[in-house]
């Protein structure tokens, strides 16, 4: 479904991503894990067109995204919940959701909003509230809900558990599983390796811009290297 081949991303002279290749198959949950600064967010931003790779290719459902402008990518069926959520803080909850459906026909928006509220009843209670006044957990739900509004085939999530209490992390991961069961393929970036590996079909481990290890979630959770580096044991 998504096939990333040999991408190289630079910030000025900093070579942040070095010859990275990975794949996501339809119906999978794939996770990219790695320490701070490993390059996880950079990879997601490159896939969604906010950053560009020097060379390589990014194939998604038979089309090459590497030269498609960022604003045309969501319509291809690929949604991205960015690091730090980046919801529109001065707009209402519902307007944020409406922006998520920017590329879709108006006639389908209400149905999609109802679907988001089904997964996140708390957003429904707060639909007229200004997004900047939501709690951190609610903001994360809004960021995910907003991405769902585009009806993505592949949903990319960048550290959805960041800054949340363990109960909320559990809640967010339950929703990720729900979305997956309803047919959405998921590419999950996490620092919370334990959590991520426990839901993932497959995982890639990133270190200083390079993929150093790959395997199924179950394999990696048992691997000594991973235990030492990421699972505190």
């Amino acid at each position: 479904m998504l096939k990333v081949n040999n991408i190289n991303v630079y910030y000025g002279s900093i070579h942040a991503i070095k010859d990275v290749s990975f794949e996501v198959h339809p119906g999978e949950i794939v996770t990219l894990i790695g320490a701070n600064g490993a390059g996880k967010s950079t990879i997601l931003q490159t896939v969604s067109g906010l950053l560009r790779s020097k060379g390589g290719s990014i194939e998604f459902l038979d089309s090459d995204l590497s030269s498609v402008p960022a604003h045309k990518i969501v319509a291809e069926g690929l949604a991205h919940v960015p690091e730090g959520r980046r919801i529109f803080l001065q707009m209402t909850v519902e307007d944020n959701l409406i922006m998520g459906a920017y590329t879709r026909p108006n006639s389908e928006i209400n149905e999609s909003i109802a679907n988001v509220y089904k997964h996140f009843p708390r957003l429904k209670e707060r639909r007229k509230q200004i997004a900047g006044t939501l709690s951190g957990g609610e903001q994360q739900m809004l960021a995910m809900g907003r991405a769902m509004m585009s009806k993505p085939k592949l949903l990319m999530l960048d550290e959805p558990s960041m800054g949340l209490s363990p109960i909320l992390v559990q809640e967010i991961f339950d929703i990720i599983k729900e979305l997956h069961e309803s047919g959405t393929t998921i590419l999950l970036v996490e620092q919370n390796a334990q959590m991520a590996l426990s839901v993932a079909d497959r995982a890639y481990v990133l270190e200083s811009g390079k993929i150093v290890l790959t395997g199924t979630g179950a394999e990696l959770i048992e691997s000594d290297e991973i235990k030492k580096a990421y699972l505190g044991g």
């Binding site: 906010l50 960022a70 604003h71 045309k72 969501v74 960015p82 529109f88 707009m91 907003r146 585009s150």
Partner: peptide
């Protein structure tokens, strides 16, 4: 508010 996020919305 956020041009990058706006682009992600399409």
């Amino acid at each position: 508010e956020d041009k990058g996020a706006a682009q992600l919305m399409g």
